[in-house]
Design a protein around this nucleic acid. Structure first.
Ligand SMILES: [Zn+2]
Ligand SMILES: [Zn+2]
Ligand SMILES: [Zn+2]
Ligand SMILES: [Zn+2]
Lengths: 132, 132
DNA sequence: TCGCACACGTTATAGCATAACGCAATTGAT
DNA sequence: ATCAATTGCGTTATGCTATAACGTGTGCGA
């Protein structure tokens, strides 16, 4: 699941996400890539699907947006569950891991024999700068 | 924020969710209430908005659906962050609280002065029965 | 009685995501 | 070399999710 060489479209989408200062929706990405020949949502969604699979992009379920992984190179997935703090004012996203949270959730799933495939942890609120 | 008497529409929507054996999308709710005079999505969304506010219904961000609170009467919000395990096969949802998870996330936010307004924890996977 | 808050109904629109078709390039076994 | 399978890509169409904007009626306190 580590990232092979990206195709042209995958590279374009990843580049847009990496340069952005916050999460972007698929349609926003599409708009940013019209000059590069993108015409339809599927071109974006198909690239995102692969980038998510490779673990270099994360999807923020609570805001239907996508963001480049904040920990390039280290294959984020291996660090366990990823959590996000999303500022609803400035859009900034902070990505972090907490092994104790992982452990507690894993304990819960083990006790109930629930097989978790994908876990979402997202906090929406105000960052320090915006709360002031 | 405890629940006042529900209006007619709110009661109808809540009733549908309570009787359902899993989460429902707003449009599914709409379809189930057409016989009761519902004609437009807003009728559902407006009722849901209040039910969420009262804490008797939860929104599952990762599947764009809504579910009745599994802990009627005790005002779920007071127990801290709510977490869900969602079976992608049978649709069953398990709702739970974990104070240690709460504490860890709260510690993180305090350390970074992030003011969390709404936290989502959702695990998607297979329940014991479906994994077998 | 006036003004306000709130629920409600309706129409229209915006925003998010995928189905289904066909084509081209790549790969990898025979 | 050839064929089949896989993968990426482009396009059109469609479906699902959510809200904007406008207007109506009702209840209730100033
Ligand atoms: Zn990451
Ligand atoms: Zn901020
Ligand atoms: Zn609850
Ligand atoms: Zn199941």
């Amino acid at each position: 699941m580590s990232a092979p060489a990206l195709t042209k479209n995958q590279a374009l989408v990843f580049d847009v996400l990496e340069k952005a200062d916050g999460p972007l929706s698929a349609y926003t990405i599409l708009d940013k890539l019209r000059d590069h020949g993108f015409r339809a949502p599927l071109q974006v969604y198909r690239a995102l699907e692969k980038l998510l699979e490779y673990g270099v992009v994360h999807r923020l379920e609570s805001i239907n947006s996508f963001v480049a992984c904040a920990h390039p190179g280290e294959n984020c997935h291996k660090h366990g569950i990823v959590a996000f703090a999303i500022c609803e004012s400035c859009g900034q996203v902070m990505e972090f891991h907490d092994h104790e949270v992982d452990n507690r959730l894993t304990d819960w799933t083990k006790a109930r024999k629930f097989k978790a495939e994908k876990t979402t942890i997202e906090m929406r609120g105000l960052c320090e700068a915006c709360a002031a």
